[in-house]
Design a binder for these strands. Structure first.
Lengths: 219, 219
DNA sequence: CGGAGCCTTGAACGGTTTCAAAAGTAGTGG
DNA sequence: CCACTACTTTTGAAACCGTTCAAGGCTCCG
């Protein structure tokens, strides 16, 4: 990977003062992670904050009876592990590396120090959590009063449209919207008939994002 | 209502420095709200932060097809409206007064100023959002891989056990866990048979909280 | 004591899951 | 480069959980 392709934390927080950017860049020690590995597991205590320089990470939780639920996705330029860190509690989900990735890490103390000393950093973190909470609660409402097909449409927009670098499996889509692979497959077939998407083998291409959004009743 | 019974913001944020407590107490202008009224509606832009001095407020969202979903409950000593305020976006749900209440209000600018100047205040806000996000995502996972009866048990603990001052209707319980009143009623009958709860008319008393928690697979 | 709102119950319907088996796809090593 | 293997996708049919609808009874409060 060329140096130029590496995303510095500074580029993720461009609104921050230079002082913070320098600190972040300096503190971050990028490491490579193989697809399928984990940055952390549910129940562990957070030791710091992760930055995705390159690649893709999924935050998911496996229930006692083995069912997985995908909460959030983190691509290039996003940080993760922040919820448990600022909540000062164990992780409630595991961070699985979905594609070979370059991940930076900043020690908890340094993050706390930054949050304490730099109110702009704190403000952005607050904003981030607020938006994630909004999304989670909207999904929660949707999980019970939307049809599965509407949720699949939503998942296609969030996963396939927003993170096209990953070839999402029917199972991952199912895990994101709380259903099963057979149901996703049947729904995708419908969407293909209606011209919303095209499927070639395992590949899913979105032909009409707008139609999907309307179908999903996205606000 | 006697003055002594009124909860000052200071009592909600006892961990904050005196300086902040004074500011909050001074800025807050408590008003009474009647049961059934609203503090704000979904889609509106936040103008400040609300503090519950006394009473009960529910945060819920009504979908296009008229189904309501209860997200969070705010009793005495809690603030609400913080998510949209720090997220700098419109409310994603409405705040309905569930019992006659005394509610304080602090202007947005004052809150922003406090967040900016007092990192401890910011830290507590971050922590609050982090915990709310955790809860929302765990409920999201539960909404698809838990039986309805398990979610009803969860709702009983969160609503009836934690906020006993309100006589929760079967409909409100249903709205919280994403089901319907008939299903809640049938489930409550089961729980009564098993000795988890007792029902007298519309009243629900929890006899064995531990058993409910186990049943709900609460972590 | 009257009426609005809440609770209860039954029966039918329907969307999803489940299970299983077969076909397809990609990646691996000979 | 092909064959092998593991995983993913696909499909069908049956079972099930929960919803829906509707009617009747109960409670509480004015």
């Amino acid at each position: 990977m060329k140096e130029a392709e590496i995303q510095k934390p500074s580029q993720m927080w461009t609104f921050l003062p230079d002082s913070v950017i320098c600190v972040l860049d300096e503190l971050t020690q990028p490491k490579t992670y193989k697809k399928g590995s984990y940055l952390y597991m549910a129940e562990e205590r957070p030791k710091g904050l992760f930055f995705v320089y390159h690649g893709l990470v999924g935050l998911s939780r496996t229930s006692e009876d083995g069912k997985e639920h995908l909460f959030r996705i983190f691509g290039k330029g996003l940080c993760l592990g922040h919820r448990a860190l600022v909540g000062e509690e164990p992780y409630h989900a595991s961070a699985k590396v979905l594609e070979d990735s370059m991940i930076g890490f900043v020690e908890a103390d340094a993050v706390y120090k930054l949050l304490h000393e730099n109110s702009e950093f704190a403000r952005q973190m607050l904003k981030k959590l607020a938006k994630e909470l909004r999304m989670a609660e909207l999904r929660l409402a949707g999980s019970t009063n939307k049809q599965v097909s509407e949720r699949v449409a939503e998942a296609l927009i969030y996963l396939v449209a927003d993170f096209p670098q990953h070839r999402w499996t029917r199972n991952e889509i199912a895990d994101y919207c709380g259903t099963t692979a057979p149901t996703v497959i049947r729904t995708l077939a419908q969407f293909e008939d209606q011209g919303f998407i095209a499927q070639q083998g395992r590949e899913i291409r979105i032909l009409n994002r707008r139609a999907l959004e309307d179908f999903a009743h996205l606000t």
